[in-house]
Simulated assay, not measured.
Amino acid sequence: MIPERNFSRESILERLRRRREYGQPIVGVAAGVGIIAKFAEQGDADLIFVLSTSLSRNMGVPTTVTMGNAIDTTLGMYPEIDNIVERTPIVGGLEASDGTRRRVGRVVDQYRRLGFDGVANFPTLAAAPENLAVRDDVGAGIVLEYDLVREARARGMFAAAFVYNPRHAAPFVEAGADLVVARCGVTVGGLSGPIRGELSTEEELERIRATCDQARAVDPDVLCLAQGGSLRTPDDLERVYANTDVDGVMCESSIERIPVEQAIQAEVEAFKALRLRTTAPIV
């Protein structure tokens, strides 16, 4: 009999802080289909994130392509992930600025009843800074995402914050975020990723450092991960760990998309390279 997952906020934090104490990076993995979640868990991922952008990655189109309502998409993917994940906390992305769900506390309750162990502000308005100021002016901006974190914490749920701008890190931690993700833009490379990143390598490191510094000025024990931009492979993370005090990495395209693209293409090409036993000349 497969046991039920049972993760409190405290047990998740204990799990993650133990990694940090042992000098091991915390690894979060986005998974929108069961096979990704299954083998992420087999690889000892620390957190499984169900994010709406997984749908576009799984469909083979760029992550920046919007696919329906983000909350509906996330809730729809959860049963498949829950069915396969046995010993890893599952965190759900929740778009706090969804105008059709203005009472965000009710949505957090829905996530909790369904079985999510935590929530994260995803998608985040900060990914489109050109629109953020206008939304902030009418009370429908980043403050809604701070409220999401407060609602999660009020219910004893683990709360993660995706942070594009370092100045947002401190308010998220003040609201109760247990973990912040310093996002360096869309992950570059692969068949459906951008050719070049939004930031240079040094700018990525500075964003990560600034985000961690701002977050830890409020809570020195808050957990910080890096994500996106040129951070595609374990080799790319070596420079991050050598030059910042980040606690680990959040993997989206770097697990769900790029390795899958490369492995399947290479395997099909290897099958095609074989030759049948035949007397016909090869042309």
Rank of each mutant, 00 (worst) to 15 (best):
D137M: 14
G189N: 07
D44A: 13
R102K: 13
G92N: 07
V119P: 03
A217F: 07
A159S: 11
H168R: 07
L237H: 02
R102W: 04
L55R: 11
P220Y: 06
F7K: 02
A280E: 13
A280Y: 13
G189P: 02
E86H: 10
R150G: 00
R239K: 13
G28H: 03
D44K: 15
A120I: 15
I208A: 04
D236P: 00
P62E: 01
I71W: 01
P123T: 07
R232E: 07
V181P: 02
D236M: 01
P234Q: 05
G93P: 03
E41M: 02
V91G: 01
I282S: 03
E202D: 14
T187H: 05
R9A: 07
L199R: 09
E80N: 12
T53I: 14
C251R: 09
S56L: 06
K38N: 09
Y22I: 00
T279L: 15
A175R: 05
V33D: 10
S192R: 12
P171C: 10
I71H: 00
A161V: 05
F7I: 09
I208K: 03
V218L: 09
R113S: 11
I258Q: 11
M250E: 08
T211R: 05
A215I: 04
G185E: 07
T279C: 00
H168K: 06
C224D: 04
A152V: 06
S56C: 00
Q24N: 09
M250H: 10
A140M: 15
D213V: 06
P166S: 04
L125E: 05
A210R: 14
I35N: 10
N243Q: 14
L13Y: 01
R106V: 13
E206C: 08
F116G: 02
L75I: 06
A263Q: 10
R87G: 06
T64S: 13
V143I: 13
E238T: 13
I90T: 03
A182T: 03
I208F: 04
T63Q: 14
M59C: 02
P25L: 02
S54N: 15
L191H: 11
E10H: 12
P220L: 07
T74R: 02
E10A: 15
E198N: 11
V91M: 08
A128Y: 10
C184P: 06
V33Y: 01
G105S: 08
M157W: 03
Q262D: 11
A96G: 06
D136G: 00
I2F: 01
R257D: 11
D178E: 04
A226M: 08
F116V: 07
F271E: 00
A45K: 07
A152L: 05
E261W: 08
R103V: 12
A170D: 05
G228D: 06
T63I: 12
V188A: 12
L199A: 00
L47V: 14
M250I: 07
E86F: 00
R135D: 14
V186G: 03
V104F: 03
L13I: 09
G43V: 06
V163Q: 01
A210Q: 12
L274Q: 13
G32L: 09
Y241H: 12
G32P: 08
M67Y: 09
A270S: 14
G99E: 10
V246P: 01
Q214N: 15
G32I: 09
S230R: 14
T124C: 08
I90H: 01
L148M: 05
D136N: 15
L125G: 01
A128P: 00
E86V: 08
V107M: 11
T88C: 10
P25K: 07
P194D: 00
C184S: 11
